[in-house]
Design a protein around this nucleic acid. Structure first.
Length: 257
DNA sequence: ATGGTCGCGGTGCGA
């Protein structure tokens, strides 16, 4: 099983790149974040046409939005937290594929240190931890994938001193993300790649991609039971170098199931 | 390094 996560920053403006990437990489499952469109405008027919008949999306106008695109059936679908209101931002979609529970999230950005949105981000990550405590066990085959919007460690940041008080790498965010991870998750990129510096996001400003000034904020985390079956995990920088790219690159993991 | 560039939607906001 090959699964990928990609914050596409608008599925309709990125559709050609997503189709081309799926045709060349052939993941079994692709989890998207920031689809930025209402469900009626999600371009599912073109994805079905290239061999992805199972598509579930949970979007809204202009902001947020998550989706799961799969070769195989998606069972027991869930949209947002069970206790979310109907008007909550659409940031979580989960389903079971080939016996693996896949939880695809777009963690809030946080905007500015100490702001209401920053507190919302910290609270959202705490709720995500509680969601796993309540609904899952370590022996389950479980994946948490998506844009976690936090770089956990200094090796995940091009310049830790520059980033130490900036969004994605502040102390409270890192504490929140480490608390989430202490549910028992294994960071698959680190399991495979040890201390290698590699990023999944580069700002559109300052030609940051060309200078490789990025952050590793997109993740594939597995329960211990599933991490044992992971054979590889990597970041595909290719799409980030195309014309009119998303600011994020896909992260990919492979499993022997 | 306090600007810079995107997508969405048709203005300014969020990232």
């Amino acid at each position: 099983m090959k699964i990928a996560t990609w914050n596409v920053n608008g599925i309709n403006s990125r559709l050609a790149q997503v189709l081309e990437w799926c045709e060349s990489e052939r993941p079994d499952v692709l989890c998207l974040q920031e689809s930025k469109c209402v469900d009626a405008k999600f371009p599912h027919s073109k994805l079905r046409a290239i061999g992805y008949p199972h598509i579930e999306f949970h979007g809204e106008k202009a902001y947020n939005g998550v989706a799961i695109i799969s070769k195989h059936p998606i069972e027991d679908l869930q949209r947002n937290f069970p206790d979310d209101d109907g008007d909550a931002p659409r940031r979580l979609i989960a389903g079971t594929i080939d016996g693996v529970r896949v939880v695809n999230v777009y963690v809030p950005h946080g905007t500015k240190f100490g702001s209401d949105k920053f507190m919302f981000k910290l609270d959202w990550i705490a709720r995500l931890r509680k969601y796993f405590d309540t609904n899952f066990e370590l022996a389950d085959r479980l994946l948490l994938v998506g844009d976690l919007n936090v770089a956990p460690h200094e090796t995940d940041v091009w310049n830790p001193r520059y980033w130490q008080d900036r969004m994605h790498f502040t102390k409270p965010e890192r504490e929140a993300i480490h608390n989430l991870k202490r549910w028992g998750f294994v960071d698959l990129f680190r399991q495979i790649n040890d201390e290698e510096k590699a990023y999944s996001w580069w700002s559109h400003f300052h030609h940051d991609f060309e200078k490789d000034r990025g952050l590793r904020i997109d993740h594939i985390w597995a329960s211990p039971a599933l991490a044992d079956n992971c054979t590889d995990c990597w970041i595909d920088k290719g799409p980030r170098g195309l014309e009119h790219p998303s600011d994020h690159a896909p992260v990919v993991a492979e499993f022997k199931l």
